[in-house]
Design a protein around this nucleic acid. Sequence first.
DNA 1: CGGCTGAATTAGACCGCCCTAATGTTGCCA
DNA 2: TGGCAACATTAGGGCGGTCTAATTCAGCCG
Lengths: 241, 241
Amino acid sequence: MAATQTPSTAHACCAIEHTEAVENYLKAIYALTARGESASTSAIAERLSVAPPSVSAMIGRLRESNLVEQAAWGHILLTAHGQVHARRVVRRHRLLETFLHRVLGLGWDEIHAEAEVLEHRLSEQLEDLIDAALDFPDRDPHGDPIPGKTGPHHESEEFALASAVRGDRFLVERVSDRDSAALRRLAELDIGPGVELDIEQLSPDGGSLQVRAHGQGHLLSAHLVDAIGGHVLSPTDTAQS
Amino acid sequence: MAATQTPSTAHACCAIEHTEAVENYLKAIYALTARGESASTSAIAERLSVAPPSVSAMIGRLRESNLVEQAAWGHILLTAHGQVHARRVVRRHRLLETFLHRVLGLGWDEIHAEAEVLEHRLSEQLEDLIDAALDFPDRDPHGDPIPGKTGPHHESEEFALASAVRGDRFLVERVSDRDSAALRRLAELDIGPGVELDIEQLSPDGGSLQVRAHGQGHLLSAHLVDAIGGHVLSPTDTAQS
DNA sequence: CGGCTGAATTAGACCGCCCTAATGTTGCCA
DNA sequence: TGGCAACATTAGGGCGGTCTAATTCAGCCG
């Protein structure tokens, strides 16, 4: 007579477990949709190194939990609810990266992988303690903004270094955290958030770039260029606005 | 024609994944067999809050991987190989407990649960860094010895406080890490490893104990008494050996 | 407008880990 | 010695998450 624990007509708000897999899917969708449009099944599959049907199945489960909705055929979006959860995961990830870097001295190129596995097991209490121990940082070592516990959050919107042209002065604001080889190389060159680059030469193939940083010239491969984001600081730009 | 990846006749040394479940079973068996004899299916089941058939199934898998052997009917032992793996998990657990306590200021009663979930995701590199950051501790905050990365290891062999008698002076060496309620209470009383207790009175029911610590008298419930281990420091004892 | 391509989904299966219910085994004690 | 209680195991099933193979769908181009 009494209602069972799973009334089928219920709102099904938090019916799904917050498993590692679920968190990874939410994070992937968040990352793919952060800069603009919706995520596709295949993009999620690629990002998570998983087969497309696995994504379809998971999306089905996430949709039933109101974490995700499908605007049109194959266009996947996070609901407001899903965004809250995704941001919590991102927050834990970036706090962990900062902690591992500042407190344990882990290299720039190593923190992402470690944070990736620990983020799913970080209790709220530990999250708060780490946040406080770091004096409430708002950017991780790669320059990505750390979401607050609640409230709105915007991923930083910067331009790719690839969009700069010869003569520009470019302020590096973030580097990709997912490419450890590139990070290792950039660490060697001492190029990271806050560093200014003078664009000296564009290679004809359109990929690599000759830049000057800390007074030294470097040829950055297309691979490295893609890992760098920031803003152009050309004189016209700074004067204009 | 070529041999496949799983030749059925192979030694099957490390065929099993080091999943969280596997590590938890190894740890449970380690804990149950540390002080003496072999572990039983039901004891493992109880410790892991799992049904006995689940244990049987897992033991079968662990046996195929040479991590465990069954001496007699239902008598489960870790192989040398299994002990190595179990100790690594215990090492990570106790290092994490120490780290969480000393670096992040987590309470005595909270560190066990946090370490329990993080220990399975700690990379070897992080393990080493934490070890170094703590200056290579050899005991965790509960007084349990932290196994080295390699080499022999002995769990400390101390006696239960319950075995003390009136008039004894008892040196607390460790407290159980698994009973957070008891730990919280002991923390309030400031009773932990290194503290000496004077046994003033045994209750007739055999459980609780009237003791004096830091000059103050306390009545310890049977629950608390069971959580405390150490050595009797009675005059005869200290004089004798 | 029909067919083709590529993306998405369904179909069907597997593995790890868990459960309950039923069956075997052991050893103790009357 | 027989029987019973306690313990261990087998039998059978479920769920989460993954896979491959087959199918459906949207959109484009001839």
